[in-house]
Amino acid sequence: MDKYKNIWRKNLIKTLTLGVFLFLLSFTFEPYNQGQLALVLMLFIGVLSLTVLTGASGQISLGQGALMAVGGYSSASLITHLGASIWIGFLVAFFATAIFGLILGTAAARVSGPYLAGTTLVIALALPSVANRFESVLGGDVGLIVDFGTPPTWISNLIEVGYEQWQLWVVLPVALTALFFISNLMATRAGRSWQAVRDDEIGAAVSGIPVARTKVIVFVVSSAIAGLGGALYGLRGLVGPSVYPVSLSLTLLTAAILGGVGSISGAFIGTLIVVFLPDLIDWAISGLAVSEQLSNYLPALLTGFLLLATIIINPAGVMGAGHRKKH
């Protein structure tokens, strides 16, 4: 038990340090960069959800963006139709997506092989139809318009807060909570039993771990985290089919793989890469006479090559060395 307490305390100190660092850093940023940092943190939560799923079960999901959409829609419809506060929205997004994940996971996560990948891909593609089917609640093609709102008066009386800064201040604590939750989870009995199932199903079953149930639980936790990220992601202005396209799911997967599967710091590095790669490409080709067609598709092309190169050359990802040491 002492060992767990140590890990717990160590993670708490790490998370708080990161939080204070990012908080102080944000004061030196332009509003645009504060928004970018908030975006990184939102997507980081989404990538973390994939890190849990893949790192703990070895499965991948191609529909993590759709799970984010479930979270986004459930919080946005509460905020729009019932006037709930965004914090209630986050809470509801977390649990609603968990329930959704339970239904989905019961069907697909117990089955090994490529079933979960294919099923989640179908869900990602089916999202616009669902939004149209329940247009009165979900807003159809357009979606629901929501935002981060304004800071409460006790903050704005104290200090002047810009919109981007407020956005970051909302996202930061949620992201840190998710980070803290997940880094501890992996060290607990539950997390270890998940890894046991991943590494050797028969061995885990013999040690008394219910394999099928464990796989479903992993998927439920992963879904809930994704829903939380999705709720934040939608608050940037709009919750609609165009905000959570299939490419979002693939971006999250790419970030998780590039950074290093199952590695939390890898998830952060991977997120940084996928967020800033398009900017970097724009900057790199800005001096060259490149056709619009090429510049439109260049980020996707490079991402595809990066993904393929990672999986062929170093499937452990950027944080691969650290990951190997742990084993």
């Binding site: 991948i60 991943r198 599967v261 199952g262 499937p315 990802g317």
Partner: peptide, 10 residues
């Protein structure tokens, strides 16, 4: 390697 084992069939 350990990473390929994590990902296995995926």
């Amino acid at each position: 390697s350990s990473a390929t084992k994590t990902l296995a069939g995926t």
